[in-house]
Amino acid sequence: MLIQHFQMLANYNTITNRKVYEVCSQLSDVERKQIRQAFFKSIHGTLNHIMVGDRIWMGRFEGKQMPSTNLDAILYEDFDELRSVRVLEDERIEAFMSKLNEDFLTKTISYVNNQGKLHTDPPNLLLAHFFNHQTHHRGQIHDMLSQTEIAPPVLDMHRVIRP
């Protein structure tokens, strides 16, 4: 049941990212990069941060040592390139979750956080954090979009994934 839940969250993540990027594509580059009252300074900065976080956590889930560094990095200045790699990253996430099994969930994952401290946590906690992190920052983007002339998309899970 937990595996199906994470697979549902992966699907929700893909759909909502498409919705967010579609709306963001209607903004000018200047407006996407406009400094706003937000932790990662702009819509573009926050989209990049979500990508940074996703890559760190996916690397950890895949057994790689991924330090929590450069969380505010701008990986892609070009929005179209960022959008293209977002699609690929979402495909990676969905493929990983489609192969999720009980064996993975019974192990632990060790990682170094951004203060340099080693943590060891159960995968179900980290997977929940992974999806919650994305939702949290998409919410910030939603708020920043509401400050533009472009209406933010509906992101409510029950509305997005309803058949």
Score class of each variant (00 low, 15 high):
residue 86 R to W: 12
residue 3 I to W: 09
residue 38 A to Q: 04
residue 34 Q to W: 03
residue 3 I to P: 00
residue 12 Y to I: 10
residue 131 F to G: 04
residue 124 N to G: 02
residue 34 Q to V: 00
residue 104 F to W: 10
residue 118 L to V: 09
residue 54 D to N: 12
residue 81 E to C: 10
residue 132 N to V: 09
residue 136 H to G: 03
residue 54 D to S: 04
residue 162 R to D: 02
residue 91 E to R: 12
residue 85 V to Y: 11
residue 76 Y to G: 01
residue 11 N to Q: 12
residue 147 Q to K: 13
residue 17 N to K: 05
residue 50 I to N: 04
residue 4 Q to N: 15
residue 18 R to Q: 15
residue 79 F to V: 01
residue 2 L to Y: 13
residue 88 L to Y: 06
residue 4 Q to H: 14
residue 124 N to E: 14
residue 95 A to I: 08
residue 29 D to M: 07
residue 24 C to P: 02
residue 83 R to A: 10
residue 113 N to Y: 10
residue 154 V to G: 11
residue 99 K to A: 13
residue 20 V to D: 00
residue 4 Q to C: 06
residue 149 E to Y: 10
residue 83 R to F: 05
residue 148 T to H: 08
residue 156 D to F: 08
residue 120 T to H: 12
residue 41 K to H: 13
residue 90 D to N: 15
residue 125 L to W: 11
residue 23 V to R: 15
residue 10 A to V: 08
residue 161 I to H: 06
residue 120 T to F: 05
residue 21 Y to P: 00
residue 51 M to Y: 12
residue 105 L to E: 03
residue 128 A to V: 05
residue 78 D to K: 02
residue 37 Q to G: 06
residue 87 V to C: 08
residue 39 F to C: 02
residue 25 S to N: 09
residue 15 I to H: 09
residue 155 L to D: 05
residue 17 N to T: 01
residue 149 E to M: 09
residue 150 I to G: 02
residue 30 V to P: 00
